[in-house]
Amino acid sequence: MKHSGLEEFLRATPVIDCNNPAVTAKARDLAAGAFGDVAVARNCFAFVRDEIRHSWDYQANPVTLSASQVLEHTTGYCFAKSHLLAALLRANKIPAGLCYQRLKNHGTVGPEFYLHGLNAVWLNEYGWYRADARGNRNDVHAEFTPPKECLAFVPQEPGEEDLTGIFSDPLPAVVDVLTKYTDYLQVRENLPDV
């Protein structure tokens, strides 16, 4: 299917390495038996949300950045998980980008505010649809229910916001943190902000 004007959201990059053999194999596997872009995208979303451990929730290393690293180690912060979801979707010829929220940190570790990474997926029937595969827990519940968004977090407090835009590549601050630090706790202590 032709996606005019959406080519940048289909390309492989060093971080969203949708041309990596392991990523393309997993993308094919997740698309098998699914009919249409919504069904394929839902399968990819559920896999990343449920089968890839959130680094902070599970206190898991190593720190991952690229989609192929996240897939190999089955762990990643929200940003890294969004990189894998984007890569799986792109490998299935579904345009996918990255979105960010600025959230208040209610924990005891890390900065007062931090960025949270999620995805925007181009669905032929609905257009851009935001989805958050960070992983559910008792206080976090995200689903893939287009056209209705069901995100992990909704910015409400002063200083919190949905950042404007859909990005084809991760923000440099995100890449910097996930490249610079080698331990999940170091990442948490130095989460990026805008």
Rank of each mutant, 00 (worst) to 15 (best):
E7W: 14
F9W: 01
R11H: 09
A12L: 07
A12T: 04
T13Y: 12
P14K: 13
P14H: 13
D17M: 06
C18T: 12
V23P: 14
T24K: 12
A27P: 11
L30S: 06
G33M: 02
G33D: 10
F35G: 11
D37F: 09
V38A: 14
A39E: 15
F47I: 07
R49F: 05
H54W: 01
S55N: 09
W56F: 04
Y58I: 04
Q59V: 02
Q59P: 00
A60Q: 12
P62F: 04
V63L: 13
V63W: 01
T64Y: 03
S66C: 12
A67H: 10
Q69W: 03
V70T: 13
V70M: 01
L71W: 03
E72I: 06
H73Y: 15
T74H: 15
T74E: 09
G76N: 11
S82E: 01
S82G: 07
H83K: 00
H83E: 02
A86R: 11
L89F: 08
A91S: 14
N92W: 11
A96V: 06
Y100C: 00
K104T: 06
N105V: 01
N105E: 05
T108N: 15
T108E: 15
E112K: 12
Y114T: 03
L118P: 04
N119A: 09
V121W: 08
V121C: 11
V121T: 14
N124C: 07
W128Y: 07
Y129K: 00
R130F: 10
A133Y: 13
R137I: 12
H141N: 15
E143R: 13
F144C: 07
F144M: 09
P146K: 15
P147I: 04
C150G: 06
L151H: 11
A152W: 15
A152Y: 08
V154Q: 05
P155Y: 00
P158K: 08
E160G: 03
E160T: 02
E160A: 01
L163P: 09
L163D: 04
G165S: 06
S168A: 11
P170K: 05
V174I: 13
V174E: 08
V174L: 12
D176Y: 02
V177L: 03
V177T: 08
V177S: 01
K180A: 08
Y181M: 02
Q186W: 00
V187D: 01
V187T: 00
V187G: 00
N190I: 03
L191R: 05
V194W: 00
